[in-house]
Design a protein around this nucleic acid. Sequence first.
DNA 1: CAGCCGATGTACATCGATGTAAAACCGAGC
DNA 2: GCTCGGTTTTACATCGATGTACATCGGCTG
Lengths: 351, 351
Amino acid sequence: MARPRIKDVARHAGVSEKTVSNVINDYAHVSDRTRRVVREAIEQLGYRVNLAGRHLRKGRTGIIALVVPELDIPYFAELARHVIREAEQCSLTVLIHQSGADRAHELAALAGFGSTFVDGIILSPLALTADDLRDRAGAPPTVLLGELLEEGADHVAIDNERAAREATGHLIGLGRRTVLAVGGRDDAGLGTAEARTRGYRAALADAGIPYDPAALLPVGSFRMPDGAEAVARALGEGRRPDALLCLNDQLALGALRALHEHGVRVPEDVAVIGFDDVEGGRFSVPTLSTVAPDKAAVARVAVQLLQRRIEEATGPAGTSDGAESGVLSPQDRIVAHRLVLRESTEGHERR
Amino acid sequence: MARPRIKDVARHAGVSEKTVSNVINDYAHVSDRTRRVVREAIEQLGYRVNLAGRHLRKGRTGIIALVVPELDIPYFAELARHVIREAEQCSLTVLIHQSGADRAHELAALAGFGSTFVDGIILSPLALTADDLRDRAGAPPTVLLGELLEEGADHVAIDNERAAREATGHLIGLGRRTVLAVGGRDDAGLGTAEARTRGYRAALADAGIPYDPAALLPVGSFRMPDGAEAVARALGEGRRPDALLCLNDQLALGALRALHEHGVRVPEDVAVIGFDDVEGGRFSVPTLSTVAPDKAAVARVAVQLLQRRIEEATGPAGTSDGAESGVLSPQDRIVAHRLVLRESTEGHERR
DNA sequence: CAGCCGATGTACATCGATGTAAAACCGAGC
DNA sequence: GCTCGGTTTTACATCGATGTACATCGGCTG
């Protein structure tokens, strides 16, 4: 009736509990016969290890958390899929947590959810400040996605500044002069939006186009309604851009809709480009040009870095004492991106 | 240096470990002074409970799993957001797991991920059969979303058959006669697609339109590319529908794109309606009519049912013996849906 | 045949938090 | 002064799996 314990298996197989444990953990010195008998007992009783006991003993759960601002921003959902795939390779289970772009939630995540049961955290911060990241003693190993907020934490991202510069450069190369940056932010922050805005400004400078702070359209969040609203407002104010650099695809998709409602043709009147290469942009009308980060690489690198940190922290695969050997210096990894040109900028998709 | 344990707090506060535990768990009979002293010690040491120990003792983790086929199908991402919100109310943490619509993964999820660390599971099955659900001794409490696969499990869904009947009826009411069902399936299965197909057939029957099995366009999965492909193929074969019932919004969005590419006007030539009311459909060109399930209600009911089952299984909030009192009969809950009419069917959105 | 070695298997302590049962304490009432 | 009832607090066992240290076994060598 009740879930069988390791001791039930032991009794059933006529061996000691430790031997069962050895079989489960593929310990080398177990005779084939014993191994078979134990396996059968496990099978018959439908035994499955209790993670609580193992965790208590080993200090590891095999669970890592992926913390993203919003799951229903498709970029994060797509990224999650890759992270899950990568983690599976290392037999890690991924717990996905949504912070709601809320500083309190992100902090809670950093602290390991007020308790301890994740071995590590992959965090895509939106609302955190560098201060939050300092002094997090006792928190589990962490890898950050997106801009580097603070020296001292591992970090994976595309070169957002360069990407934005290329994207903006592409728009300018089409002959556009009035490029608005939807979601652009000029403040001192260290986030992704700020980096992309820097790239945008750099591209303008490259082309000798003066920068107008009013060309940054602020948004509440990075979702379709915000993009649509921001663009509708700009058009309503009589502004007549000939191109939009949208800081993510959701904003861009919202912008496409707003442009459509105002009778503005894309790309003839206004060219639009986004970031993230989400699926929606491949099926929108018109299809959306975008900066495509290598999501699989982001996920791969993030999981690998985290894996290393975890081993560093708890000793290779569960040794009692955390052998403080060669502590890795914080890693700062840049992964590839490419410009994908579709109908919204009149280009042809390169393959 | 190392993370403090409960005994460190006890020593620091000059009380016993159990007293610290009592403070943490808000046990009634602790003097205010003791409580304060312990709180301070916890604060000073930065103590946080170790979930492994608690889990081992209490048999509960406070974690529930939400298992969905694909996270990057926005419906599931949006649903996840609601589930997380609901679970938070009950101080449950949600672990999201992606099954990849893969039977093996779904089975693993059902079994509690080959181990035990979730208190319960909310599962949105795609590939499971009724057989898989029978005889799952030892598995954690489970609530199913979507069609009822098997008596004996709790289950939450909209009335898919009725919804499909209404949606199809709406198309027919627009004067359309040739309604294709994208993603429709006529086999004996018990899934959501089958229920919606039944509703589709019922609506045809209501209107005295003969049913043609060829009107069901099969799809590999329920995503934009599949919808686009299926519709492109149908058009390529010379079929000339005047309406499409797409079994989810992703298929519909893909269909919109395919229609656009074939120069077919929506809704003038072809009316399109989907299911799920995802955000993408509110910003597509044209905007997408859809069957909107009350996602918040789905999440609320699912979490409540699960919560009950968990308490039933482990005793209210952690009593040692699972008091097998009044076992609840399996619940079968229907939540509301409504038709949201947008540009793709020429209607006006009701509020 | 004694002695030794490597390969297997076992008893027991241990990880951290909490339930149980009982001790310590405190004030009231006789 | 002493008992009684109730409140606080504590010692200890316990949850399940696994690391440690040791026992056992069989075979092989000298």
